[in-house]
Design a protein around this nucleic acid. Structure first.
Lengths: 205, 205
DNA sequence: CCTACCGATCGGTAGG
DNA sequence: CCTACCGATCGGTAGG
């Protein structure tokens, strides 16, 4: 009713927009429905973000920015203990599972705006994935990792699988009876990723 | 100009709708834009499909129906040569890579209508996936396959990964430099799926 | 941050 | 299979 502190309204809009964009997509979500969910009027929403396009990119940036901050932290932590694939993958899941809407807007955005998304992914994440592929090549050189693995394809595949698992996995599980839970699938993905990368005999990496 | 044979118009509408739904989503696509792409008027489109909702489900059914016909054929072929995971996976890729829009509308539909999509997936594909999980359990019993694999999660994961790879993989590849092609990623997914399932020493399955 | 309002486009119908 | 048309809702603006 009277919380007109600018940043709190902005945050509330972003939060509601994330949820509605994830559920219905950007074009399936009207500005008035977002305004209503945030408890403000539509012109107020436009005042804060300029346009629907401005709101879309603000929501997307918010999701991506976390990675810009988190990824370096993870890489440092992982490097100190050797190339710990599991912990990287688990951190990935931790972030996206804590709010599945993040994964869903990313997948939607890749479908809606592939060209723009390519640029964004390259800018934000290539420095990180490069470390990953370098680590894999190192491991292959030392005989720890399977030489058949293609470092680039492997990395894209694991990230892409993890993202889509969080985004649509719980519904894709209807493919099967009895349905595996998202937690089951997460454990299995980590197992698959490890098994397909490490040379036998397997050891904790 | 004068091809008023009913079925050809219907087919043309379905084809254009598949493309536009895949690119922009259902809610991002107007009936008039589909009508224009198909070379007819909007009321004609509505006459053929009743409503936008009718068109949506017709497009979706068309994609799913192929599987209803193809899957049994594949399973029989695969069974005659033992559980040949690779050939199943390759047939999957063959279908979706021949028109990536099929994969994209399926992923969009899972995001837009998770509940309805769960029902559809269960009806069309559970008989098939059940054969898959049974074959895996058999292979585990005979020592051919890794006992650690969870048949249900493994199956969902492989299908989900393959689908999203076709749908967004070529753009997700911007995560990496140099970018792997979709073909590279497909080969690597097959390798990962095989390696994570077969007990070493590996043999053609 | 709001009320009042705008032109454009939406999905769909009437009628033929 | 078309032209002509409808009410509703869209994103966004004026003005305060």
């Amino acid at each position: 009713m009277l919380q007109s502190v600018d940043s709190s309204v902005r945050a509330r809009i972003l939060e509601q927009a994330l949820g509605l964009f994830a559920e219905r997509g950007v074009s399936g979500t009207s500005l008035s429905s977002i305004a209503q969910a945030a408890g403000i009027s539509k012109p107020t929403l436009v005042y804060h973000f300029g346009s629907k396009e401005g709101l879309r990119s603000a929501v997307l940036n918010q999701v991506m920015e976390h990675w810009q901050a988190e990824v370096p932290r993870l890489m440092v932590a992982a490097a100190s203990g050797g190339p710990r694939l599991d912990s990287l993958l688990n951190a990935f899941f931790e972030y996206f599972q804590s709010d599945r809407n993040r994964a869903r807007v990313l997948v939607r955005e890749m479908l809606d705006r592939p060209v723009e998304m390519r640029t964004l992914l390259a800018q934000h994440l290539q420095p990180w994935t490069r470390l990953m592929t370098e680590a894999i090549r190192l491991g292959q050189g030392s005989g720890l990792l399977r030489p058949q693995a293609d470092p680039e394809s492997y990395t894209v595949l694991v990230i892409c699988s993890a993202l889509s698992l969080v985004a649509v996995g719980p519904d894709a599980s209807a493919l099967i009876s009895p349905e595996p839970t998202l937690a089951d699938q997460r454990v299995e993905l980590v197992r698959i990723a490890r098994t397909a990368l490490l040379n036998p005999p397997q050891q904790e990496s």
